[in-house]
Design a protein around this nucleic acid. Structure first.
Length: 396
DNA sequence: CGTCCACGTCTAC
DNA sequence: TAGACCTGGACGG
């Protein structure tokens, strides 16, 4: 679950479920993951988490057991000097598109659990890093990525610093200044006005905060099938009647009203998927199909959202929205597909068949702040938050 | 069955 | 600035 607020919630989840929980042994990595092994081993350790933007740091902290050093017992330290206790270790995670943490009974190891921390209890449990698409990364003894933007949850004030170097951005910020209210007002009045009439920068913070306060409704591995609260919260993303366009990076931007003067015009041909190189993980097959060319042009931004039009999603969404008993029989899951896909992910487990279909229609509406940020962000900067390096005046 | 799409980075041209 | 990296659900034929 990759959005900023969700990583924040993931961190809280880990700290909640792991509070007072003792872990033991080695950290186990799935065979298919290309991420590094985590060479940590301890008889007894605890786990805590720290969030920052779109990263979460797990700290593995060995616990000194005051009384438990019976000599014979320490046989389990493979490559470790028995005399020196294991050192604490930090592991920094990025979640990619689908990463999450989940604490489960050992008997219920989920599919795609690529990193596993075992508890010490008798029926063991496992804290898993679950990531079915495997875009997530972790780094042993990692630190926060240096060129990331500030955390919208914890470092919001940094967004107010560093006036962007380009004129238009400065103009915009000046415009925000000019919105300042009457200096004669009391502070509480000013705060109140600001709350009622938030500017762009204000929203960069308040939106993720709102998601965070949805709490378990938005991110909760225990009841991860229920996204209704989050969907209710969304105003544009996949909301019927809203428009969407693809930006220069091929990302679909949802919005209401006019797209603005910087809207993508040309609509270049889409990315195509073709070659897939046979990985040890991949199901072989002949991947030599010609680049399927389809050039969807003409991004008529009025009309319906492009994505919805093409695939009838709008219908689907309206249907969902109207999914009340009064609407008569829907054919909804007319064909419940049960594909027994070759799950190479966790070969050693019999992947509990888990038939729930999770809704995919959930994501990052708060990201819509990027719409206003225009396309000119710093080259390499990751999109942790609205690191609005340039906010063209015209886009406001 | 094939195509398209999805909450994000990375890196090779 | 395109692909690459992945899995899997929805949909079209």
């Amino acid at each position: 679950m990759p959005e900023g607020p969700e990583l924040h919630l993931a961190s809280r989840y880990v700290n909640t479920v792991c509070a007072g929980l003792l872990f033991s042994g080695k950290v186990e990595k799935s065979a298919v993951s290309k991420n590094p092994e985590v060479p940590f081993e301890s008889n007894t350790y605890v786990i805590s988490a720290t969030p920052r933007g779109k990263e979460v740091k797990l700290t593995l902290m060995p616990v000194k057991e005051a009384e438990s050093l019976p000599l014979a017992e320490e046989s389990s330290t493979a490559g470790q000097d028995p005399d020196s206790p294991p050192q604490p270790m930090d592991v920094v995670f990025r979640f990619g598109m689908s990463g999450s943490f989940k604490l489960v009974p050992e008997a219920e190891l989920p599919k795609h659990a690529h990193l596993r921390f075992y508890t010490r209890e008798s029926p063991r449990r496992i804290l898993c890093f679950v990531d079915f698409r495997r875009f997530g990364r972790w780094e042993v003894q990692g630190t926060w990525q240096p060129d990331r933007g500030p955390c919208v949850m914890l470092e919001y004030e940094k967004f107010r610093l560093r006036i962007p170097p380009f004129e238009k951005a400065r103009t915009v910020l000046e415009a925000l200044q000019h919105r300042e209210q009457d200096p004669a007002l009391t502070l509480s009045k000013k705060v109140k006005l600001k709350r009622e009439n938030p500017d762009l920068l204000e929203l960069c913070h308040s939106l993720p905060m709102e998601v965070f306060h949805l709490g378990g409704k938005g991110y909760d591995p225990e009841s991860s099938d229920d996204f209704t609260a989050f969907q209710q919260w969304l105003r544009c993303y996949y909301v019927p009647g809203m428009k969407s366009l693809r930006d220069g990076n091929g990302r679909t931007i949802w919005f209401q009203g006019e797209p603005g003067p910087m809207a993508p015009k040309g609509k270049k041909s889409r990315k195509k998927h073709s070659r897939g190189k046979a990985d040890s993980d991949a199901p072989s097959s002949k991947e030599t199909k010609p680049p399927s060319k389809r050039s969807s042009k003409g991004s008529s931004s009025h009309e319906e959202p492009q994505g919805t039009k093409k695939h009838g999603r709008k219908k689907e969404l309206i249907q969902r929205a109207e999914n009340s008993p009064a609407n008569g029989p829907k054919k909804r899951h007319a064909r419940a597909r049960r594909k027994g896909s070759a799950c190479q992910d966790s070969p050693e487990t019999k992947a509990p068949a888990e038939g729930k279909t999770r809704s995919r229609r959930r994501a990052a509406a708060y990201k819509s702040t990027e719409v206003a940020a225009g396309g000119s962000r710093k080259r390499q900067a990751r999109t942790d938050g609205p690191v609005t390096t340039v906010i063209p005046l015209s886009s406001l």
